[in-house]
Amino acid sequence: MCGHVLGALAENRLHRVLFLSTGALMSQTTFLQGESIPGIAHLLELSSEQEAGR
């Protein structure tokens, strides 16, 4: 990410980038009881200075 995406944002080749990471909140107890497994997601938005000024 740092080498490619941040460099492209700094050079205004990219204007807005969204990163979304997902995962599951695993628990042996929940799994063994047959219950559903809750999920979680984190979103990060990066934008260039030119995009912010629009």
Rank of each mutant, 00 (worst) to 15 (best):
F31A: 15
A10R: 06
Q33H: 13
H15G: 09
G23T: 02
L46C: 11
R16N: 09
L20V: 15
L46M: 07
E11V: 00
L46S: 01
Q28F: 07
E35W: 09
L18A: 08
A41G: 13
L18Y: 13
H15Q: 09
M1G: 12
A24H: 09
S27H: 08
Q33F: 07
C2D: 14
H15R: 04
M26L: 15
L46I: 03
A10W: 04
V17Q: 01
T30A: 12
E49G: 02
I40K: 08
N12F: 06
L9N: 00
A24G: 11
G3F: 05
E35P: 01
S47D: 06
S48V: 02
H15S: 08
L44W: 07
F19D: 06
A24Q: 13
L43H: 08
L46G: 01
R13C: 03
V17C: 01
E49A: 10
Q50S: 11
A8G: 05
M1E: 11
T29Q: 15
L46R: 00
R16Y: 08
V17E: 01
T22M: 12
H42N: 15
Q50D: 07
Q33N: 12
A10I: 03
T29M: 10
H42T: 15
L32I: 08
S21F: 14
Q33E: 15
E45G: 02
G3T: 04
G34V: 04
V17H: 00
L32G: 11
N12G: 07
G34F: 03
A24P: 00
S47A: 11
F31K: 14
E11L: 08
V17L: 00
A52I: 08
E35G: 10
T29E: 15
E11Y: 05
G53Y: 10
F31Y: 15
